[in-house]
Amino acid sequence: MQNSDIDLVNIQFQLNGKPIRLSVRPFDSALAVIRDEIGLTGTKEGCGIGECGACTILVDGKAITACLMLAPQLDGREVQTIEGVAEGDTLHPVQQALLAHGAVQCGFCTPGMVMSAKGLLEANSHPTREEIADALAGNLCRCTGYVQIVDAIEELAGSPRANEAVKR
């Protein structure tokens, strides 16, 4: 089918703090639009069915899997992707914590992990270890990085930098 046969949907939303307008195919996922139309490829596609968390983004501050969201549902929302997390060359405190703990073993699961951790810290700046593990349970890590990841977020949450992590 050509795009000309399709009723495109006009949407506008805040993407990493900047307003964006575009026309999307009504049946595409938010993930497809973010990666293929907008070209922000930091958000990864793993399973495509909500099980791996590689596509995690924040919508109105809440972690969701972009592969399960319809693109038109982005309309009017405030959306954050991994690209909006670092400020220039300065990594976000969550990213710094992961690096410091040797918890970044691949580029694939990490963006999703960072977004889930950020979503948690925005709602709860001093989570317990259990709450951290629960918040990251929807992000699969196929290697051995998991313990370091939870350690990293736990240490960050216990430090004054947690408040900074929330603000950014």
Partner: peptide
């Protein structure tokens, strides 16, 4: 249910 992401949606 599911995971944080699934519960948020």
């Amino acid at each position: 249910v599911g995971s944080t992401q699934i519960r948020n949606m």
